[in-house]
Amino acid sequence: MTVLTQQPDRPPSGRPSSPDGKRRRRPDDTRTALFFIAPAALGLAVFLAWPLIRGIWLSFTNYNLLTDPEFIGLANYRRLIADPIFWDSMLTTVWYVVLNIGIQTAAALTIALLMYRLTQSTLLRGLVLTPYLVSNVVAGLVWVWILDTQFGVGNQILGWLGIDPIGFFTDSAWAIPTIALVNVWRHMGYTALLIFAGLQTLPASVYEAARLDGSGEIRTFFSVTMPLLRPIMALVLIMTVIGSFQVFDTVAVTTNGGPANATNVLQLYIYDLAFDRFQFGYASAMSVGLLIVLGIITVIQYRMTRADSSDLA
């Protein structure tokens, strides 16, 4: 991100050393800095850097949690490429991401624009954010109950409209779209507030000019707001897509991969391999695969949306 540019430090020579016996300031705080940095550096090294290296190393082994890992070269990766369940799982995940991000971005953009044009109310923004306060687990459970085939109020309402009950979580065609929508419900308010914050950074003068030129609401949106909002939308998309690919909680609580692997998203498959079948090495290889996919997607998105260049600059 571009936030890091300012460096308010002055050169150490700026202050003349005081001759009247006061303690002179040392130009170098290395020892103090070591004290301040130690716990965080330990955390970074032990729980982030080391696991990253170890995860990659384990992907080249046959580790099973019980015996020592043994180097087996690229065997896990060869197996990965030939694993139909992996590709099926990848497809399921991509389908989920497309639905989730597509609907969520449209909904969030709508909410953000409505709030921007209608009201600055903090209460409204707070209300929109409420689903984000509950855990994925609670969100999943509520919707399993609301959309229960027999006793859920959702299917009762469909019944009044003359529609046959839908097995939202039990029908293999419906399960992924339903889970995608549950997560849209939980995250759209949060995403909307991100976009809303971006909208507030747009200069009012541009809108004034558009209005003076007789531009209507819709015209202004497409030829002023959207182009100016592009860098912000790009960042929002990169963030939400990466989060979306890592979906696990909601699936684990609602369908646990079923019916018949219809919701077997990547993280669920990885978890299943590691903790139900103890194939830690293979699960690690799959994690590396996901890491690479996420990296590629980020780069592509960044290029496509030109997130680094703003039309306001």
Binding site: F47, L52, Q246, S284
Partner: peptide, 13 residues
């Protein structure tokens, strides 16, 4: 680094 990537190795640790 995506959080999920560190979960398996952190479990081992």
């Amino acid at each position: 680094v995506p959080t999920v990537f560190t979960l398996l190795p952190n479990f081992v640790l």
